[in-house]
């Protein structure tokens, strides 16, 4: 579905990713784990065309999308929910969804505001509220819903659980599992193992811009030294 090969990228001359590799299979939920500063967000931004890759390859559904303008990448069916959520604060919930709306795409679930309000009943109840006047959890739901309006076949979630109350964490996790059932592939960044555990089939661990482990969730449990080494203090 999505494949990153020997990717080198960063901010200007500050390099963050070093020959980074990653693969996301169809219908799979993969957690990209790593401490902050390890390069997780940079990886997603580079995939999304928000940062320029210096070298390497990014393939999505067997087409190269490396360094395409981000609107084209989005139209190819790759959705992106940034860490800061970046809700349009002056726009209402309904308007935020409208910005994300794209025509239906073959082979991907088709979303409408009504369908999304079933998934996120909260949002449905306050469609006229401005993005700036929402709680963190509501913003996260809106950010996901807004991306789904583009009818993507895969989505990238950057730390979707950050700053959310435990109950909300559970409901966002339920949403992600629901999306998996709908057939979406999901790649999420996480520095928190407990959250990753809620949703991921597989984990990749990134440290200092390199992929240093890839395997199943259960493998991680049988090998605690990995955790100690890459995630703990």
């Amino acid at each position: 579905m999505l494949e990153l090969r020997r990717l080198n990228a960063g901010y200007g001359r500050a390099q963050v990713l070093f020959d980074f590799e990653l693969a996301l299979g169809a219908g799979e939920v993969v957690a990209l784990l790593g401490r902050n500063g390890a390069g997780k967000s940079t990886a997603l931004k580079t995939v999304m065309g928000l940062l320029q890759a210096v070298s390497g390859e990014v393939r999505f559904e067997n087409k190269s999308i490396k360094n395409l303008p981000s609107y084209q990448i989005a139209r190819h069916g790759l959705g992106y929910v940034p860490e800061e959520r970046r809700i349009f604060a002056d726009l209402t919930i309904a308007e935020n969804l409208e910005v994300g709306r794209r025509p239906p795409r073959d082979g991907a679930p088709h979303w409408t505001p009504e369908k999304l309000f079933d998934l996120f009943p909260n949002l449905g109840r306050m469609q006229a509220r401005r993005g700036g006047h929402m709680s963190g959890g509501e913003q996260q739901m809106l950010a996901i819903a807004r991306t789904l309006m583009g009818n993507p076949s895969a989505i990238l979630l950057d730390e979707p659980f950050e700053g959310l109350a435990p109950l909300i964490v559970e409901s966002v996790a339920a949403t992600i599992r629901e999306l998996k059932r709908e057939g979406l592939s999901v790649l999420l960044c996480e520095q928190n193992l407990r959250y990753a555990r809620l949703v991921a089939d597989r984990v990749c661990i990134i440290e200092k811009g390199r992929l240093c482990h890839a395997g199943s969730m259960s493998e991680l449990d049988t090998n605690p030294s990995l955790l100690q080494r890459y995630l703990s203090v």
């Binding site: 928000l50 981000s70 989005a74 349009f88 002056d90 726009l91 308007e95 994300g100």
Partner: peptide, 24 residues
């Protein structure tokens, strides 16, 4: 209008609008 909504979105955060598939 949809156009107006896109204009306001782009005024606030051009990059994000692009990442949502808006051709600027």
């Amino acid at each position: 209008t949809r156009w107006g909504i896109l204009v306001r979105a782009a005024t606030e955060d051009r990059e994000m609008a692009g990442a949502l598939g808006v051709n600027q």
